[in-house]
């Protein structure tokens, strides 16, 4: 016999189901008067530092049909590459930027939209800089465990080329699945759950 490590098992995931909006964005689900507003709908205010951008996209199933019952959360650094989190131990992040957003895909068109700022670069554990990116988490009916991925910026070619994570992707044809293209101040990032254009998802 040996000592036990006495670890517990993580609670197993279960799908968010078709009514995830009731719990996470009740005002969007027309359940009003319980919370003043849905969490995560405002990431910036007029004092937030950095370049204002809009991130838009859809979550698409294996037939290319957009999901109309998905929920997307994003998490990102501020303009200086700092996270608004107690686990950020470098210096304090921009107090006028939450770094976290939550948006349901539209019940009619399946589009999610985040008004945010372009993040700065943050270090990889070995000290190299990562390219600017936004961390995504997607849940929906039919998704048994939330999917983690990242969005990179199409107009950051030089930093994308040296990004330690993009460089870990063995099949280079899949790299573009993580790169959003810019038009004006709008970046479009479609997430493909399946098929030829399946987005790279992470076990992270």
């Amino acid at each position: 016999m040996v000592q036990s490590l006495n670890r517990l098992k993580e609670s197993p995931s279960q799908t968010a189901g078709p009514y995830v909006h009731i719990g996470l964005t009740p005002n969007f689900a027309e359940i009003t008067g319980v919370y003043p507003e849905d969490l995560g709908i405002r990431m910036v205010n007029d004092k937030t530092k950095g370049e204002r951008i809009v991130v838009k996209g859809r979550v698409l199933d294996g037939t290319g049909t957009p999901l109309k019952d998905a929920l997307v959360e994003i998490w990102q650094a501020d303009a200086d590459g700092l996270y608004n989190s107690p686990s950020e131990v470098r210096v304090s992040a921009d107090a006028n930027f939450t770094g976290w957003g939550r948006c349901p895909s539209g019940m009619d068109d399946g589009v999610f939209t985040f008004e945010t700022i372009k993040p700065g670069r943050v270090p990889y554990p070995d000290g190299r800089l990562q390219a600017p990116h936004i961390t995504f988490w997607v849940v929906a009916r039919g998704i048994n465990i939330g999917l983690h991925t990242r969005m990179y910026f199409g107009d950051e070619e030089a930093s994308n080329a040296e990004d330690p994570i993009l460089n870990r992707i063995e099949h280079r044809v899949r790299v573009p699945t993580l790169i959003a293209q810019r038009e004006g101040n709008v970046y479009t990032f479609d997430i493909h759950l399946q098929g030829e254009k399946e987005t790279v998802f992470f076990d992270i």
Partner: peptide
Amino acid sequence: TSVLRSPQKSLLSLDGTISEITGPR
């Protein structure tokens, strides 16, 4: 519903970076 909504390729396994180790409070 999982049939058309399940990724078919392997997940890319990575150690957490500051982007995943941090989180909103």
